[in-house]
Amino acid sequence: MARRTKRIRVTVNGERYEKEVSPSKSLLDFLRMDLNLTGTKEGCGEGECGACSIIMNGKLVDSCLILTVEADGQKIQTIEGISRHDRLHPLQKAFAEKGAAQCGYCTPGMIMAAKYLLDHNPSPTAEQVLKAIAGNLCRCTGYGSIVDAVLSAAKER
């Protein structure tokens, strides 16, 4: 069968892209393969682990369960877009200092989830942090240091 493609326009981390994509390609694959933004990870491809979390039009979403064509006309932010050059986002700094990243594979998604929380609730409680990252699995830290990091970043901001 002939392969159909669709033309989409999308803004990722402030850069505008216009690309031909297959309608069945996931947004995660598009970011990682077509744009080489490999900071966003695949952990399950089923919307259970949150490693592929990005912010699209202001909402935290799992990019593995979105088709690239659905992102037409949308604004996307990935882990690569939250720091500029050597200026780290307070969350990135806090994750580094508090030991909130061990293997680091869940970290980009985790930071995006935390950023989404702080964007909406600048001074969360520990419980709110736990809820906000409930869709992001971490197998290394046991989550305590992540909560510490998010609370510390909230104070910094």
């Binding site: 919307g47 949150g50 909402k59 979403v61 799992d62 979105i66 989830a113 809820k131 409930a134 869709g135």
Partner: peptide
Amino acid sequence: VGSIQTRNR
């Protein structure tokens, strides 16, 4: 229903 990521979609 699911995580915040899921509820946002």
